[in-house]
């Protein structure tokens, strides 16, 4: 594992600088960094295989099953995750190829799931990712770099290798667009609890406005319905929040035109047992959005703390 991490660490460092990796057979494709980034995570099955269960961070382990789940093996699990991102698809493809090539002496590919977000500059600053149901997605996230973000995301204690690291929950969520598209705008907004135009809560004006869950229409019904996604997902205490980083995916449509689209939904947190799981349990109990969204893939990974130049990813775990 340490030799593998040695190669990946050097590769990621070079790719993030827009340089070709060592032994790159196509160095001419290193045309720029394009905000290339990659990190490596380790699934519960890897800790089991290597007898390293004692090195798992607090709260980390296989997710329980949820009744909304229709998980498929081909999109789920895995020993080691490499999550690769870049603003340019050619840079991304070339970088991915290099990281796979340098992984083959140690592992085989279980799955590769491609996703996308907006082209930089496409949406106004401050507007989050708009998913393929049309919703503004990723609102109410902690701000990267803030004290709030640090407390939600970064692990501070436990085994040395995980300090400064985090826990990732990954869900591949299929969208039933054919039936979703039959709803009118008002219905779609009630399902989510936000306006489609700018992501503002139904009780507010701007995306960042805090939802008023107590607000009622003159007829007595709550403005944000009891079944609305944001009511069910909103934190019930200080710990059950996450940093969500959703991407969209699109596979080939069926012959009748039914789209195969959805989210590669990722969320980062200190402790998935205290953060993701309680939120997902509430959504599993009641969330009208479940009618149109089906989790078909799921995985969890522990992400090692960041490193300085000259260090190796997860060195303390595998030494």
């Amino acid at each position: 594992m340490l030799r593998w991490m040695t190669l990946l660490t050097d590769d990621i460092s070079r790719l993030a600088s827009g340089e070709p990796i060592l032994a790159d057979p196509n160095p001419e494709l290193a045309i720029g960094a394009a905000r290339f980034s990659a990190y490596v995570g380790f699934g519960p099955s890897l800790f089991r295989k290597l007898g390293l269960e004692s090195q798992m961070p607090s709260g980390f382990g296989p997710l329980p099953s949820f009744k909304v789940d229709q998980l498929q093996d081909q999109f789920s699990g895995g020993d080691v995750l490499i999550h690769i991102a870049a603003d340019d698809p050619i840079v991304l493809s070339h970088g991915t190829r290099g990281l796979i090539r340098d992984s083959l002496p140690f592992a085989s590919v279980r799955y590769s799931q491609s996703g996308f977000a907006h082209t930089p500059g496409m949406v106004p600053a401050g507007l989050t990712h708009r998913n393929l149901m049309g919703q503004v997605d990723g609102t109410a996230n902690p701000k990267p770099g803030s004290e709030d973000f640090n407390e939600v995301v970064w692990i501070e204690d436990g085994p040395a290798w995980i300090q400064g690291g985090t826990q990732l929950v990954f869900r591949r969520i299929a969208m039933q667009l054919n039936t979703w598209d039959q709803l009118g705008t008002a219905s779609k907004e009630e399902v989510i609890g936000r306006k489609l135009s700018n992501g503002a809560p139904l009780t507010g004006v701007n995306e960042e406005d805090a939802p008023d869950f107590a607000a009622r229409h003159p007829n007595g019904l709550t403005v944000i319905p009891d079944f609305a996604h944001i009511r069910r997902a909103s934190p019930q205490n200080v710990t059950d929040r996450m940093f969500r980083r959703p991407f969209s995916y699109e596979a080939s449509p069926a012959s009748d035109g039914t789209p195969d689209v959805g989210l590669l939904w990722t969320a980062y947190q200190r402790d998935m047992t205290k953060q993701f799981i309680p939120v997902q349990r509430r959504l599993d109990e009641l969330d009208l959005l479940n009618e149109w969204t089906v989790p078909i893939g799921s995985a969890e990974f522990a992400i090692a703390g960041g490193i300085a130049r000259g260090e190796i990813i997860a060195q303390a775990l595998f030494s």
Binding site: S17, G18, G32, R35, S37, P120
Partner: peptide, 11 residues
Amino acid sequence: MPPAADNLGND
């Protein structure tokens, strides 16, 4: 995090 890509283009 690497710096943002230069919008002037790679050339």
